[in-house]
Write a protein that binds this DNA or RNA. Sequence first.
DNA 1: TAATTTATGTCAGTCGATGACAGATGACAA
DNA 2: TTGTCATCTGTCATCGACTGACATAAATTA
Lengths: 217, 217
Amino acid sequence: MGLRERKKQRTRDALIDAALDLFLTRGYEATTIDQIAAEVEVSPRTFFRYFASKEDVALSLTADEQRMLLAELASRPESESPFTALCQAMRSLLKMLREADDTEAGRYLRCQKVVHSTPALLAGTMRLVKENERKLVAEVARRLGADPCDLQPQFIVAVFVSVALACFDERTQDPAVLARRLEDLLALAERSLCPGWDQPVRSGAGERVSAPAPAPG
Amino acid sequence: MGLRERKKQRTRDALIDAALDLFLTRGYEATTIDQIAAEVEVSPRTFFRYFASKEDVALSLTADEQRMLLAELASRPESESPFTALCQAMRSLLKMLREADDTEAGRYLRCQKVVHSTPALLAGTMRLVKENERKLVAEVARRLGADPCDLQPQFIVAVFVSVALACFDERTQDPAVLARRLEDLLALAERSLCPGWDQPVRSGAGERVSAPAPAPG
DNA sequence: TAATTTATGTCAGTCGATGACAGATGACAA
DNA sequence: TTGTCATCTGTCATCGACTGACATAAATTA
């Protein structure tokens, strides 16, 4: 890797670290691009050559995590049922977090604190998750031998995403606590869902969804 | 109601309609506040006295819907289980949509089209939904006689929200199609979830969540 | 070293959003 | 009707996020 690329990577990391520090101390809204750029001794214009927006720099780590989750899912064995594969992918992600070096772990913690104390960033996170959800649905549909437009893969991913999101409480930032919370929620999900609910439906039976539930009331 | 209040309401509605029209024809990003204000023959400054932001005017109807969903839930009889009550509240909301007059229905349709074609507005919608989710959890917890911090009410609402969100496909804007999609998803959910999964757990049994699911890596 | 590519800084400008002040308008009592 | 008061509105000034254009500096390659 050439000098040029290394310099770019260093500038990028420095911008992220400076931004997270300022967001954490002064608050996200109160921090200006000029301040971040000044901290790294770079022109404000250069900031926007690395990040598309102020939100982008705060959520760059989150975006990375979403990509990693998708990659982990793709690497799960085909023998696992879709929901199991999703859960295992999530466990892998948390494991990587716990095993990260101090620099990365610190970045992650600061990022979590900032995001959970800033409504705008929480909204941005939701957008990233929703975008990734479409890709997860595509992969789950492939595993089921179904169409991505079918309801079942969408439902499976929706349940998984809602469980995963429920883990990220504003008070839960430590990866160990997070992992514990995930396991508790997955156990609850396991108790609530019928066995085989995320298996492919056998052709000719159970596929029909024409009878709407009765509306008492 | 005095003349003043009526004028304000008219200005507000005019701003929403003008904004939605411009967003729909020129696109959300390409539309400026000045253009919206000019359309209603009002100063740009006045626009911001009615709406906190450009996003706010696009999502004012969505915010209304969230408030209505919460109100519908609160009016459901206590005899209904939490998930049933949530579903019935959603059905009530869709019913109100189908029964709305042409003006309202038109506004709703334009709003849906704009939101689903604009990532920023999709993110904003997620933020509104997430904010409302906390209130839904509180109400569900109350019905269960549980604490809002418990996992069960959070899980129940999370499943409901994920199903409700899955209804709003980018291609699904017509209220009738939407209602059909909701019923299909609810039927799928009913088949996937154990009977009584959203009932209060009997004290002394089933409350423990200490045994994590095995991790067949 | 020369030529080419690529990153950066400077400048000007647009747009979203806010505070301050003054003028206009509806509400209400005498 | 008139005058007072509260409220709504327009104008002006300003900040901060973001972008395009152009020139300069640095790294890569021949």
